[in-house]
């Protein structure tokens, strides 16, 4: 349960990334991230490709003395977008503890998403209707929810299964 302050903050702003040209349930998909999830937006990054990596994993990149994976979010969901140029968004994720009561065992993950240049900070879209993920042909595990809105299909991605498959990531060295 997020605290009251968190709700307020979440209600204030989201960062929306419009995947121009793609279609989900006949609407243009808009990826929604909580503002507190977004660390920074980068114009260009130096990506080091990884051998034998899936096509959506573009490679690794150095950011603020950290090595972060660079993920093509459109490819990850089997889509493609048309844009003048691509931007890169540094996203932070909180990996929940296995035992939910123990908050101390939570850990922070970061990754860089390759997105379109149609990024905007905006209010949480109101008056949207929940849409069935199954009907969209997307992997339900990769989304927290789909919401039909007049501005487009609002999609809240769930990056955890991609970046942190259970037991795939070794425990960080403390």
């Amino acid at each position: 349960m997020p605290d009251e302050q968190g709700i307020k903050r979440a209600a204030l702003k989201t960062v929306a990334v419009r995947l121009t040209g793609a279609k989900v349930l006949d609407q243009e998909p808009v990826l929604l991230f909580a503002t507190r999830q977004v660390e920074e937006i980068l114009q260009d990054v130096e990506v080091r490709p990884l051998p034998f990596a899936p096509d959506w994993l573009l490679g690794l990149c150095a950011w603020r003395r950290q090595v972060l994976p660079v993920v093509d979010i459109a490819k990850l969901h089997g889509m493609s977008f048309s844009a003048d140029r691509s931007l890169y968004m540094v996203i932070r994720l909180v990996v929940p503890a296995e035992d939910e009561k123990e908050n101390s065992s939570r850990r922070m993950l970061r990754c860089i998403l390759k997105v379109s240049d149609r990024i905007a900070a905006r209010e949480l879209p109101k008056q949207c209707a929940a849409a069935a993920i199954e009907a969209s042909g997307l992997d339900p595990a990769l989304f927290k929810g789909l919401f039909a809105h007049e501005d487009g299909m609002m999609m809240v991605p769930n990056l955890l299964p991609t970046l942190c498959p259970p037991a795939a990531w070794p425990e960080p060295a403390v």
Binding site: Q5, K8, R9, L12, K13, V15, T35, R36, V38, E40, I41, L42, Q43, L87, I119, A120, A121
Partner: peptide, 26 residues
């Protein structure tokens, strides 16, 4: 202007993350 735009976007995201205090900056 491109760089400014991204800077501004970053600034606005940071300001939003800062909550009430960042509103003016936003």
């Amino acid at each position: 202007s491109d760089r400014t735009s991204i800077l501004a976007l970053n600034a606005s995201i940071q300001a939003a993350a800062a909550g009430e205090e960042g509103r003016g900056f936003a």
